Computed example of a mutant assay.
Amino acid sequence: MGFLSIDNVTKSYGAVRVLHGVDIEVEEGEFLVLVGPSGCGKSTLLNMIAGLEEISSGEIRIRDRVMNGVHPSRRNIAMVFQSYALYPNMSVAKNITFGLEMHGTPKDQREAALARVAGMLQIENLLDRKPAALSGGQRQRVAMGRALVRDPDVFLFDEPLSNLDAKLRVDMRTEIKKLHARLGTTIVYVTHDQIEAMTLSTRIAVMSGGHIQQLGTPRQIYDDPANIFVAAFMGSPSMNLLPARLHVSGQGAVAEIADAEGAPLRLPVRGNFAGWDGRAVVLGIRPEALTDPGGADRAARDVVALRNRIDVTEPAGADTFVTTTLAGRDVIGRLRADAEVRAGQIADLAVNMDKAVLFDPETELRIG
């Protein structure tokens, strides 16, 4: 039994079902990220945990207490919104402690809690300001302080960093990560940003169309995607997905694709592919598994040398991204920053087939 249990939960608006039988067990102290594209149901699920949306069927339990029908004020949860939702006419200090005051917390306890979270978030010098005088990052810290001061069972974050600029998002991700490590609190965090999901979470629930597509650790989600949607959604740049034909024999299995000139290229794949000989498959290769020979993983068992035309180069500081052609598709590789490649040349590349995955083109599920 999890600390937070989401048991076969559905949500419908009239005849339209937007969540389909969601099952998740969240352990105490876990950082669960709900990630997926807009409209996938992740914010709806978060609002149901908070009590802001009614549950159509199923149960949500916190500390083994059924939350169905329980008012949000009685759930001992704290929520940080995308819009910050600060009171504009109140000071920072008042915004943080207002909820405690409404719950009748004595003044000395409110002040002690304020001092604790202000120090933790390094906003002591902002306590007398109004929200209008704060930057976006400062407002987000205040919104987090208002949640932290209550010492809830569960923290809920609804896309809290989406209004911040790129650098500030990275800084605030680090702050949230450090905060979780320090407090050991249970967090459910909604985002459409898969980088946030990968860097913050202890586990990720990838959602699409109101279904949980895969639930696992960041490493499981990234290395062993359950289907094509997860493979394509998680990762930046996303996984290369190529039409291939699988050949299985007593010596093993190979996925056959065409190189840039249309010549057949046979790539070894590992797994249980009984019944798949001669069938069409989708071959998935992460950009970092297509690199320059010197950058290939020396511990890999199956690295295939390849000479292919480079169509585009994109220097990106620590890496150089290249676009080439395989199986008639644009394919992105991640090379070392000092790799000497240029558009139009035929370059030596290396494909780490240890990292390759195969999918059924009909069901889009992982095979092997």
Rank of each mutant, 00 (worst) to 15 (best):
R150W: 09
S12K: 08
D277L: 08
D165L: 04
F81C: 05
A337H: 14
V66I: 08
T313R: 09
A255C: 12
E30A: 12
E288A: 10
D338L: 04
R245M: 13
V331N: 03
M48K: 01
V351P: 00
E111Q: 15
K94G: 01
A350Q: 00
I212N: 08
H192N: 07
A305Q: 13
T186I: 09
N125Y: 11
G235F: 03
R286H: 00
E314V: 09
D297L: 12
L127F: 02
V322G: 12
G14R: 05
L246T: 14
V33E: 03
G368T: 02
N89P: 05
Q109L: 14
G29V: 04
T313Q: 09
S135I: 02
M79F: 02
Q109C: 07
N47E: 12
G14K: 07
A205G: 12
V188D: 03
I257M: 09
V70H: 01
L283K: 03
L290Y: 10
F273M: 04
T323V: 14
G184S: 07
N272Q: 13
T186M: 01
P243Q: 08
K167L: 14
A147P: 04
D151Y: 09
R298S: 13
H180G: 02
L19W: 05
G137Q: 07
L4N: 08
G2K: 03
L86V: 10
A50T: 07
R141S: 13
V254N: 11
L164Q: 12
K107T: 11
K107R: 15
G275E: 06
Y13Q: 08
L349P: 12
D7C: 09
L168T: 13
R65F: 08
A305L: 05
G294I: 06
I195M: 00
G136H: 12
H103E: 07
A255W: 04
R307A: 14
L134S: 02
D171K: 14
G252D: 06
G252L: 09
A318P: 04
M79K: 12
D223Y: 03
L100N: 12
A305T: 07
S38M: 11
V35Q: 02
D302I: 01
S91W: 06
A327S: 13
G333A: 09
D64F: 05
G99E: 01
H247T: 15
F273E: 13
K42I: 12
K130A: 02
R336A: 14
L127W: 03
V303K: 03
E53Q: 15
S249G: 15
L19P: 07
D165F: 04
I62K: 10
L114P: 06
T185I: 04
Q138P: 05
I212P: 07
R74K: 14
V22A: 04
S208A: 13
N8G: 12
I176M: 15
A132K: 15
P225N: 08
D302S: 04
Q194W: 00
G368M: 01
N308Q: 13
D193V: 03
R116Q: 15
D193Y: 06
A274E: 13
K107C: 10
K178D: 12
L4V: 15
N8E: 14
I55R: 11
R173Q: 01
V312F: 07
L168N: 11
T185H: 07
R141D: 01
K355G: 02
G262H: 11
G275N: 07
R270L: 06
V92L: 00
E175D: 11
G137E: 06
